[in-house]
Design a binder for these strands. Structure first.
Length: 736
DNA sequence: ATTATTGATTTTTTT
DNA sequence: AATCAATAAT
């Protein structure tokens, strides 16, 4: 073969299994790709191979990735192998972005009138709150947030309100089904879709229009899905249908890295792949090219304790590497100081900061670490947290933009009407919305003409002129999104409004608006035809890690979930305590506990060179101080695999292991004779016989007290009020 | 009718 | 700490 022959180029430097993955032609293929086994390489080379060697037109290949950033990177790599033109033609993106594209193409079939608008969780919740209000008193008292998550969970199981209602009994379920129906109706009436709908409606599009399904099934000669272990039932249905004609379905994933069960991901999709797709070929990539032997030993030692897995052991021939260190700190601040100290040490030894990541289970853990890094003058960056596009000030302005594109969007209308305040309130909004529905017109038109129609309201004129402003932009489709944001923010004097709120961080908020303008400018430059609708779509489907750029010279802080698919030279896994990692909510469910264990596995395998594990003995949580046992995952690691700090032992380090229900015995803790040195107050104190007095509820019987001191929570039965849980500091306690 | 204030409630992960 | 609902004040 000549050296520039695509065949040799695309197989160069690949191991045997990887080559098989690249060269596999027709038929179903499952690539079980262990962490760090070079799956991205296989995927990109496979894509290039399909085009260059098999002659498949790029437009007829569909590749689904987990984030849009991953899609972008893969596209770039394919472009490097094939050329830019071919790479651009590939269908590539997340399920959500690809499905939204399909939905928009066929939206008239689904009954959408204007511009389909994506509602995020906050939009959904606010619409549900509205719907509850409109349904009247019988539905009041439910928490909109709870209803939202229940509906979303049900949609993830592919239920509709009817099947949801029949799936169980009870007034709560009937009530939610009723709210759900009303929510769905209102959502459709304003051309809205929520995240779950994007997938469900795609399925429905295929189900009710077999010819459309057939068209795409024939069109895509090959379908590739990355991170298959985190697909849900709807996504499986979509994949199955798209692959139904040619049968060329290639999925890549790792059952040990499935970490989105709580969001509907169904691990059986990957576990049962061979049953779902006849004559599927299975390739196992277990050789790891990322981490040192010691890091892999630890990851393997922990994940071995899971039952629901295909079972594999990743290995490397790159040597043992540096010891994995464990540090047990007194509290979270000490832990943070230690992390900062180690980072300083690494940087001092010539490591550049962007090769370092600090991982944690929950966003709340970032604060002490940030403070320690600031004190140590270490540049860092936090991924996620309050996602940028979820910020109040950003969402306010997005509401204006959304109204230009979709003037039926009531959620955005109400939001924009109230920010800035212009003398019109909720009641005026209600009236305008009602008038618009009544006259079957859109909200901007209704706002402008409301006064003529006899709608009253002090702030109406101001609202009407804001609506006119937005209407005037409707014709100017060629105005770049970032110019639009600037102009609108100026015309409504958004900066002045922020200032008037007198919040201490109003300047930060305004800075976010300016940052948003820059983001929109960047979007305009990167897209060929950058219009407002496209910008809003991109923003709606934006992932927290999508804007993560390497080489900023800053250490990265993020949740383990966000770290999926990433790798760093040095990784800190922090907060390894029972109740935090694994998290409380998983402790009584063996399956959720296994998911936490997979999460630990993902965390550990992000590290290339050095891995630091840490936890603390006492952690301050919002309302109380929790004495913490170390994570059981640490107990699953043979002691000789860890290098604990000398003083970790002097704290009486031991992992307290609770027996798991229905599972084989856990590995032994490190040492039985180690006793915890710090005595903790018992977390539950019997409060029997006490009487509590409350300013509002009067006197009541104390049922129990959780925690100690003024921050304890007391459960009290107040005659006429029922049982309340109240902070002890709000109560007077007396012997009865 | 609108805005400001108070009081209560919450603990996870996010496309 | 931050967000939301109920209540008070304008």
């Amino acid at each position: 073969m000549p050296p520039d022959d695509p065949r040799s180029l695309l197989l160069d430097g690949l191991n045997d299994v990887q080559r098989q993955g690249v060269e596999h032609g027709d038929g179903a293929l499952l690539i079980l790709a262990g962490a760090g086994s070079g799956k991205t390489r296989v995927l990109t080379h496979r894509l290039a191979h399909l085009v260059a060697v098999h002659g498949i037109p790029p437009t007829r290949i569909l590749a689904v990735t987990f984030t849009n950033k991953a899609a972008g990177e893969m596209r770039e790599r394919v472009a490097g192998l094939l050329g830019i033109e071919d790479a651009r033609q590939l269908w590539m993106g997340t399920f959500h972005s690809i499905c939204l594209r399909l939905l928009k193409r066929h939206q008239e079939r689904l009954g959408f009138r204007g511009t389909m608008t994506v509602f995020d969780v906050e939009d959904q919740t606010s619409l549900i709150r509205q719907v509850v209000k409109e349904l009247g008193s019988e539905e009041s008292g439910v928490r909109a947030r709870d209803v939202q998550s229940t509906i979303s969970a049900a949609k993830n199981l592919m239920l509709d309100p009817d099947s949801f209602e029949q799936n169980g009994i009870g007034p709560a379920r009937r009530r939610i089904a009723r709210i759900w129906r009303a929510y769905e109706a209102r959502l459709r009436a304003q051309d809205g879709v929520d995240f779950d709908d994007i997938l469900l409606l795609t399925l429905r599009l295929f189900e009710t229009n077999p010819e459309i399904q057939q068209r795409y099934a024939e069109r895509f000669l090959h379908v590739l899905v990355d991170e298959y272990q985190d697909t849900n039932r709807a996504q499986f249905g979509i994949v199955r249908r798209l692959a139904s004609h040619h049968g060329n379905i290639c999925v890549v994933g790792d059952d040990d890295q499935s970490i989105y069960r709580w969001r509907g991901a169904d691990i059986t999709n990957i576990l049962e792949f061979e049953r779902h797709f006849a004559a599927a070929r299975v390739l196992r990539m277990e050789q790891n090219y990322r981490s040192t032997g010691r890091i892999l030993d630890i990851a393997n030692a922990v994940i071995r304790n899971n039952r629901g897995r295909k079972g594999k052991t990743i290995w490397t021939d790159r040597g043992q590497g540096d010891p994995v260190r464990l540090h047990v700190a007194e509290d979270e601040e000490a832990e943070a100081r230690e992390v900062a100290r180690r980072i300083e040490e690494e940087i001092g030894a010539g490591r550049s900061p962007e090769e370092i990541a600090v991982l944690y289970r929950t966003h709340a853990q970032s604060r002490p670490i940030e403070e320690a890094l600031i004190r140590g003058r270490i540049a860092y960056r936090v991924v996620g947290g309050v996602a940028f596009y979820q910020r109040r000030e950003v969402k306010d302005l997005l509401a204006y933009l959304r109204l230009i594109v979709n003037p039926l969007d009531e959620v955005s209308f109400r939001r924009a009407a109230l920010a800035p305040r212009r003398g019109a309130g909720e009641t005026t909004c209600d009236r305008i919305v009602a008038a618009a529905r009544e006259r079957d017109t859109d909200l901007l038109v209704a706002a402008v003409h409301a006064a003529d129609w006899g709608v009253a309201g002090r702030g109406l004129p101001a609202l009407a002129s804001a609506a006119e402003l937005l209407l005037s932009y409707r014709g100017e489709a060629d105005l770049a999104p970032h110019r639009l944001i600037e102009e609108i923010a100026g015309r409504i004097d958004y900066r002045g409004w922020l200032q008037r709120t007198q919040e201490s961080d109003w300047e930060d908020r305004w800075a976010h608006v300016l940052e948003m303008v820059e983001g929109a400018r960047g979007y305009g430059e990167s897209e060929e035809q950058a219009d407002l609708a496209g910008y809003l779509e991109q923003v709606a489907l934006y992932a927290q890690t999508d804007d993560l750029r390497a080489g900023e010279g800053r250490a990265i802080l993020m949740t383990v979930h966000n770290a999926k698919g990433l790798e760093y030279e040095v990784v800190f896994v922090t907060g390894l305590e029972e109740g935090l990692f694994p998290h409380f909510s998983s402790l009584d469910d063996p399956e959720e506990l296994e998911e936490e264990r997979r999460l630990f596995y993902v965390a550990a395998t992000r590290a290339r060179q050095r891995l630091f594990l840490s936890g603390c003995r006492v952690r301050r949580r919002i309302n109380f101080v929790a004495g913490a046992d170390l994570s059981r995952f640490l107990g699953e690691i043979p002691r000789e695999m860890l290098e604990a700090d000398p003083y970790a032992g002097s704290f009486g380090f031991r992992a307290r292991l609770r027996p798991l229900r229905g599972r084989p015995a856990e590995p032994e803790p490190f040492s039985e004779e180690d006793e915890p040195i710090v005595e903790r107050e018992p977390s539950v104190v019997s409060g029997a016989g006490l009487v509590a007095r409350h300013v509002r509820y009067g006197t009541g019987q104390v049922l129990r007290i959780d925690g100690a001191g003024d921050r304890a929570r007391v459960e009290v039965r107040f005659p006429g009020w029922g049982v309340k849980r109240i902070l002890r500091s709000y109560l007077k306690l007396e012997e009865s």
